[in-house]
Lab assay of single mutants.
Amino acid sequence: MQIFVKTLTGKTITLEVEPSDTIENVKAKIQDKEGIPPDQQRLIFAGKQLEDGRTLSDYNIQKESTSHLVLR
């Protein structure tokens, strides 16, 4: 499924993911596309910070959901 990640600069990154993917996996995909190390990434969805060990389905992130990327 596709999800979108919006950066603070207003850029939207499109990612191909599975509901069973962990947040860690998603951060690795963002690193592949954008070159941002996962330890600098914070992903926010529905006002919550997403934890590495959880999956997209844990957070009820469905296709075409948009989460926000904040850099630390």
Rank of each mutant, 00 (worst) to 15 (best):
M1L: 07
M1R: 03
M1Y: 14
M1K: 03
M1A: 03
Q2R: 13
Q2S: 10
Q2A: 08
Q2T: 14
Q2L: 14
I3C: 02
I3H: 03
F4N: 06
F4L: 10
F4M: 08
F4C: 06
F4E: 06
V5L: 06
V5G: 01
V5N: 01
V5R: 00
K6S: 09
T7C: 08
T7E: 03
L8W: 15
L8Y: 14
L8A: 13
T9A: 12
T9V: 08
T9N: 12
T9I: 07
G10T: 03
G10C: 08
K11I: 09
K11R: 11
K11E: 07
K11Y: 12
K11P: 04
K11Q: 09
T12F: 12
T12W: 13
T12M: 13
T12G: 04
T12P: 03
I13A: 01
I13K: 00
I13E: 01
I13T: 02
I13S: 01
I13G: 01
T14F: 08
T14N: 06
T14S: 09
L15S: 00
E16S: 11
E16C: 12
E16G: 05
E16R: 09
E16L: 13
E16W: 14
V17Q: 01
V17K: 00
V17Y: 02
V17R: 00
E18Y: 14
E18M: 14
E18G: 08
E18S: 15
P19R: 06
P19N: 05
P19Y: 07
P19Q: 07
S20V: 05
S20P: 02
S20N: 13
D21N: 06
D21M: 10
D21A: 07
D21K: 01
D21Y: 08
D21F: 07
D21I: 05
T22H: 04
T22E: 02
I23E: 00
I23G: 01
I23H: 00
I23A: 02
I23P: 01
E24A: 15
E24T: 08
N25M: 15
N25H: 12
N25C: 11
V26N: 00
V26E: 00
V26F: 03
V26M: 05
V26T: 03
V26G: 00
V26Y: 01
V26L: 10
K27Q: 02
A28T: 10
A28F: 11
A28L: 14
A28P: 00
K29F: 05
K29A: 06
K29E: 03
K29P: 00
I30K: 00
I30D: 00
Q31A: 14
Q31I: 02
D32Q: 14
D32H: 11
D32R: 13
D32S: 12
D32G: 09
D32T: 10
K33W: 06
K33G: 04
K33E: 07
K33S: 10
E34S: 12
E34L: 15
E34N: 08
E34M: 15
E34W: 15
G35M: 04
P37H: 11
P38L: 12
P38R: 13
P38G: 07
P38Y: 12
P38S: 13
P38W: 11
P38A: 15
P38Q: 13
D39S: 12
D39C: 13
D39A: 11
D39T: 09
D39L: 08
D39V: 09
Q40M: 11
Q40Y: 07
Q40G: 06
Q41M: 13
Q41H: 04
Q41S: 04
Q41N: 03
Q41L: 06
Q41I: 11
R42M: 15
R42Q: 14
R42A: 10
R42S: 12
R42C: 14
L43R: 00
L43C: 01
L43Q: 00
L43I: 08
I44R: 05
F45S: 04
F45T: 02
F45Y: 13
F45N: 04
F45P: 00
F45K: 03
F45Q: 03
F45E: 01
A46I: 06
A46L: 13
A46F: 09
A46Y: 09
G47Q: 04
G47K: 04
G47H: 04
G47M: 04
G47E: 04
G47Y: 05
G47T: 04
K48P: 01
K48M: 14
K48Y: 09
Q49A: 11
Q49T: 14
L50V: 04
L50R: 00
E51V: 08
E51M: 10
E51D: 09
E51H: 08
E51R: 08
E51S: 07
D52F: 03
D52Y: 04
D52L: 04
D52A: 07
D52G: 06
D52S: 07
G53Y: 11
G53P: 05
R54I: 05
T55Y: 06
T55N: 05
T55W: 03
T55L: 09
S57N: 09
S57D: 08
S57E: 11
S57Q: 12
D58W: 11
D58R: 02
Y59G: 01
Y59T: 02
N60A: 07
N60R: 06
N60I: 04
I61S: 01
I61Q: 01
I61R: 01
I61E: 01
I61Y: 03
I61D: 02
I61L: 06
Q62V: 12
Q62I: 12
Q62C: 10
Q62A: 10
K63P: 15
K63W: 12
E64S: 10
E64A: 10
E64W: 13
E64C: 10
S65I: 09
S65P: 13
S65V: 09
S65H: 08
T66Q: 10
T66W: 08
T66K: 10
T66L: 10
T66C: 10
T66M: 11
S67G: 15
S67M: 15
S67D: 10
H68M: 13
H68E: 10
H68T: 13
H68Q: 11
H68D: 07
H68S: 09
L69A: 02
L69C: 02
L69I: 13
V70L: 13
V70M: 11
V70K: 06
L71T: 07
L71K: 05
L71P: 07
L71V: 11
L71S: 06
L71N: 05
R72Q: 14
R72K: 13
R72S: 13
